Amino acid sequence: MNRRYVHRLSVLALTAAATLTLAGCVVAPPPQHAVTHIVQSPPAPLSEVIPPAPYPDSYWVAGHWKWEGNRYVWNNGHWEQARQNQVFQHAYWSNNGFEWIYHPGRWVALAPENNTQVIVANVAPPPPRVEIIGPAPTPNHVWIGGFWRWNNGQHVWVSGHWEARRDGYFYAPGHWYRSGNTWTFSGGYWQRN
C-alpha cells in the first residue's frame, strides 16, 4: 500500500471514531422545574425521624409529597452540606382555590432583613439533634427545624415546631456554615419568595 492511501485511511478512521464518540454525547438542557397542577389536595406531611447529622454544618432538607403516576408519593428528607449565603426553600403545595400547585425545593440566596444581626462563633456547633417530627396540623403548615443558637458564649439547642405557612414567604431555616476558622449563623426567619 502506498503511504498516501494509508494516511487517508487513518484520517477517515479517526474522523469516524470522533463522530461516533461525539454522537454518543448528549448535552442535556438545564432542568426545568415543571409546575404540577392537581385538583386533589395533598395529604399532610408525614412524620419523619431525622437521623443524626453527618457533620456540624449539615442542612436538613425535609421530605415532601410529590405527584407521580396519578397519585401522591412521599419523598423522604435527607441531609445536605450547608451552602454559604444560601438557604434551601423547601418544596411545598399551594392552593389557588381551584387546584393545588407544586413548588419544587431549591437553593436560594439569603436575603436577610436590615435588622438581622450577623452571628459568628469561634466554636463549631454540635451536629444538629435528632428530631421526631409529628404529623402536621394541616397541609398548610411548614416544619421549622431545630437549630443551635449562640447564647452567652455557648451553643444552646432550640427545638423545632410546626408553623402556618405565610403567603408570599418561605422559612429560611437557621443553620451554621464554616467560614474559615469561624462559624457563621444564617437564616432563622421568614423570607419573601
Rank of each mutant, 00 (worst) to 15 (best):
N2T: 07
V6H: 12
L14T: 01
T15N: 15
T15M: 09
T15L: 04
A17G: 13
T19A: 03
A23W: 12
A23F: 02
C25R: 11
C25S: 09
V27G: 15
A28E: 05
P31F: 02
H37D: 14
H37C: 13
I38T: 03
I38W: 08
I38D: 11
I38N: 15
V39A: 03
Q40H: 13
A44F: 13
A44P: 00
V49L: 11
V49K: 06
V49Q: 07
I50P: 01
I50Q: 03
P52M: 06
A53N: 08
Y55Q: 15
D57K: 05
D57E: 01
W60F: 04
K66R: 03
K66M: 07
G69S: 11
G69I: 13
R71S: 04
V73C: 15
V73N: 03
V73D: 07
W74D: 11
W74F: 12
N76P: 10
N76F: 04
G77P: 02
W79N: 15
E80G: 10
Q86W: 03
Y92H: 15
S94A: 13
N95I: 06
N96L: 00
G97R: 09
G97N: 00
F98P: 01
F98C: 10
Y102W: 04
H103D: 15
P104G: 05
P104L: 12
W107L: 13
W107Y: 03
A109I: 06
E113H: 01
N114Q: 12
N115P: 10
Q117C: 09
V118C: 02
P126Q: 05
P127K: 07
P128Q: 14
R129D: 06
V130H: 01
I132Q: 15
G134M: 14
T138Y: 02
N140F: 14
V142I: 10
W148F: 01
R149S: 00
N151Q: 11
W157Q: 00
G160E: 06
G160M: 01
H161S: 09
E163C: 02
R165S: 00
Y169D: 14
F170H: 09
A172L: 04
A172D: 00
P173A: 11
G174N: 04
H175C: 10
Y177D: 14
S179E: 11
T184D: 14
F185H: 11
F185Y: 08
S186H: 07
G187W: 07
G188F: 13
Y189G: 00
